Structure formats: structure tokens, C-alpha cells
Amino acid sequence: MPIMCTVQLPKGKKSEQIEQALVDLSNVLMRDFEAQPNQVRVTIDELPRNRYMAGGVMAYDMPEFNQGED
């Protein structure tokens, strides 16, 4: 039976950061659940800033989500 993990985060992270997170999460799941690589599925969904709200504030209005923007 596959082990599935989905992470959602605001769009804008570097591709290297996303790839490293995928590797790290996969390794943790394989280790902790004694799973084989073909049993682990990890996805990262990047959310546009106009599709994310926290505490009634849109992500594009949150300074912490706009740091490091190109």
C-alpha cells in the first residue's frame, strides 16, 4: 500500500528548495514507515497568493509571504 504525502505552500520557492524537500520527505517516510521507494508518493502543491488566506488576510497582503519575491 502506498504512503502518500501532500504539502501545500505559497508559490515562489526556488526549484532547488522544492526538490530538496521532496527528497527529504521521501526519505523520512521510507525510514519511519520502513517503506520501499516505490511505495512512497510525495507531492508539493504551490498555491498562488490569490488562493491562500490566513486569519482573514490574503497571502499577497502578508509581508512574510512576499519576502524574496523576484
Rank of each mutant, 00 (worst) to 15 (best):
M1K: 12
I3D: 03
M4H: 11
C5F: 04
C5W: 05
C5G: 05
C5L: 12
T6L: 14
V7G: 03
Q8K: 00
Q8R: 02
K13W: 10
K13G: 07
S15P: 07
S15I: 06
E16A: 12
E16R: 04
Q17S: 10
Q17D: 13
I18R: 01
E19K: 04
E19S: 03
E19I: 02
Q20V: 01
A21K: 09
A21C: 15
V23T: 12
V23K: 15
D24I: 03
D24V: 10
D24C: 05
D24T: 12
L25G: 03
L25I: 13
S26A: 14
S26E: 10
S26K: 08
N27Y: 06
N27G: 07
V28T: 12
L29I: 13
R31T: 08
F33L: 08
E34P: 04
A35R: 06
A35T: 03
Q36A: 14
N38Q: 12
N38D: 14
Q39G: 05
Q39E: 14
V40M: 04
V40D: 03
R41W: 10
R41G: 05
V42W: 04
V42Y: 04
I44W: 00
L47K: 02
R49Y: 11
R49W: 04
N50R: 15
R51V: 01
M53K: 06
A54G: 08
A54P: 05
A54H: 11
G56P: 10
G56S: 14
V57S: 11
M58V: 15
M58R: 14
M58K: 14
A59S: 13
A59H: 06
Y60L: 13
Y60A: 11
Y60M: 13
D61H: 11
M62I: 13
P63N: 06
P63G: 04
E64V: 09
F65V: 04
F65K: 01
F65I: 07
Q67W: 15
Q67V: 15
G68R: 07
E69I: 08
D70E: 04
